[in-house]
């Protein structure tokens, strides 16, 4: 069963007196456990599509069903619940909260889920162990390198074991080694937990890891291919 299904999605933004069309006629189905990327140059509509799938935005036309919920008809509260309970986000600029420690940043989604303290600690430590950054549990984001920050960001997205992780240019601010490390880790999590990953990227490194690559050009899907991932091992890096 598809966990994401979009039918005829279009997105238009007002630009002065005119309207700019960011997406048009997007028909898409993504199954559980996929490791898929929406690729394309800047301005092709990747982030806009990701935001609609993440219930952060509404389509101007068409319908997007994510985990059984129609995004366009969700209230603010229901959209927040969907994001909180079933989605994970990874951002290009990590978006860690600067005054919180690594532990507190990763704990935040669990606090919103009103989980008890013991369970939260257990899940946070498991997530940090998975991304190999447990030793930095009490550090503040400012004390971490870019790669470490993105690991924390991945741990925050994965801590509640969501059905779907949406990653917007997750390696754009990372060097080659860190990019491959992060991508290997995500691939591992995908295999281990069967979490669906959907990337928005124009990074060649990310594309090597994808099992499915959907190309957007000027807001339209111009290619949708399935392929074998070609991960680069840390030793090779």
């Amino acid at each position: 069963m598809a966990i994401i299904e979009t039918v005829g999605i279009a997105k238009r933004y007002p630009m002065g007196k005119r309207k700019f069309t960011a997406l048009r006629d997007i028909d898409l189905k993504i199954e559980k456990g996929e490791f898929t990327g929406i690729v394309g140059p800047s301005g092709s509509g990747k982030t806009t599509l990701l935001n609609i799938i993440g219930a952060l935005d509404h389509p101007s036309e068409g319908s997007a069903t994510v985990l059984g919920k129609k995004v366009e008809s969700l209230s603010h509260k229901d959209a927040a619940r969907l994001r909180n309970q079933r989605l994970g986000f990874i951002f290009q600029t990590y978006n860690l909260l600067p005054v919180y420690t690594v532990y507190e940043n990763v704990e935040l989604p669990l606090l919103l889920l009103k989980m008890n303290k013991e369970k939260r600690r257990e899940l946070v430590e498991t997530a940090l162990k998975r991304v190999g950054i447990l030793d930095k549990i009490d550090s503040k984001p400012a004390q971490l390198s870019g790669g470490e920050r993105q690991r924390v960001s991945v741990a925050r997205a994965m801590v509640k074991e969501p059905d779907l992780v949406l990653a917007d240019e997750p390696t754009a601010n990372l060097d080659v080694a860190n990019s491959h490390n992060i991508l290997n880790m995500m691939l591992e999590l995908n295999r281990e937990l069967e979490t669906t990953f959907l990337f928005a990227t124009h990074d060649e490194k990310v594309m090597r890891y994808l099992r499915r690559q959907i190309t957007l050009t000027d807001g339209r899907i111009t290619e949708d291919i399935e392929k074998e991932p070609e991960p680069v091992s840390p030793e090779e890096v």
Partner: peptide, 16 residues
């Protein structure tokens, strides 16, 4: 603003 956006993405409602 970025922090507000992040909190909303993590599942906070605007009211929260």
């Amino acid at each position: 603003k970025k922090e507000i956006g992040t909190l909303i993405a993590l599942g906070m409602t605007r009211r929260q």
